[in-house]
């Protein structure tokens, strides 16, 4: 009996975080995977904020990270260099206004020199 109860509770727990992950990120952006990290991208007018998260969606300190984002805006690629703005996020500015949910990819360089990239569709 105990086993089946545990199974029920476990299944419920398994479903919940995944659904939260699918909808949106904590900072109001979209989350995708980049190698061993998760990244959340928040586009607002010309500013792009990228949060680095770990596998369990906990924010990681952004210091030491570098990044490039290439987003397709109105059918043209826009290259945005990302640099740590504060302890939490990397920020970059584009030359054109980014839409609410631009397509593209983000490439991160971790403090240890490894790279990771994530794609936003």
């Amino acid at each position: 009996m105990v086993f089946w109860r545990v199974a029920v509770v476990g299944s419920l727990l398994m479903t919940l975080p995944v659904q939260a992950h699918e909808v949106a990120g904590k900072f109001g952006g979209r989350v995708t995977d980049a190698g061993k990290y998760h990244v959340e991208m928040v586009a607002k007018d010309k500013t792009l904020d990228v949060y680095v998260l770990d596998n369990s969606e906990k924010p990681l300190p952004a210091t030491g990270f570098k990044g490039i984002a290439i987003l397709v805006v109105n059918g043209k690629p826009a290259r945005i260099t990302l640099a740590p703005a504060d302890a939490q996020k990397l920020t970059g500015t584009a030359e054109v206004a980014l839409g609410a949910a631009p397509k593209g990819a983000v490439q991160l360089t971790a403090p240890d020199g490894t790279t990771a990239s994530g794609k936003f569709n």
């Binding site: 009996m1 089946w4 109860r5 199974a7 029920v8 299944s11 419920l12 398994m14 479903t15 995944v18 659904q19 992950h21 699918e22 995708t32 995977d33 061993k36 596998n55 994530g118 794609k119 569709n121």
Partner: peptide
């Protein structure tokens, strides 16, 4: 009740499975 619980557990487990398989999620 046991049977219902078991069925629920299996259903939830099945639901939980594909949810993980979202786009590009390969750790």
């Amino acid at each position: 009740i046991t049977a219902v619980l078991r069925a629920l557990a299996v259903t939830l487990a099945l639901l939980a499975g594909p949810a993980y398989a979202h786009e590009g999620h390969d750790h």
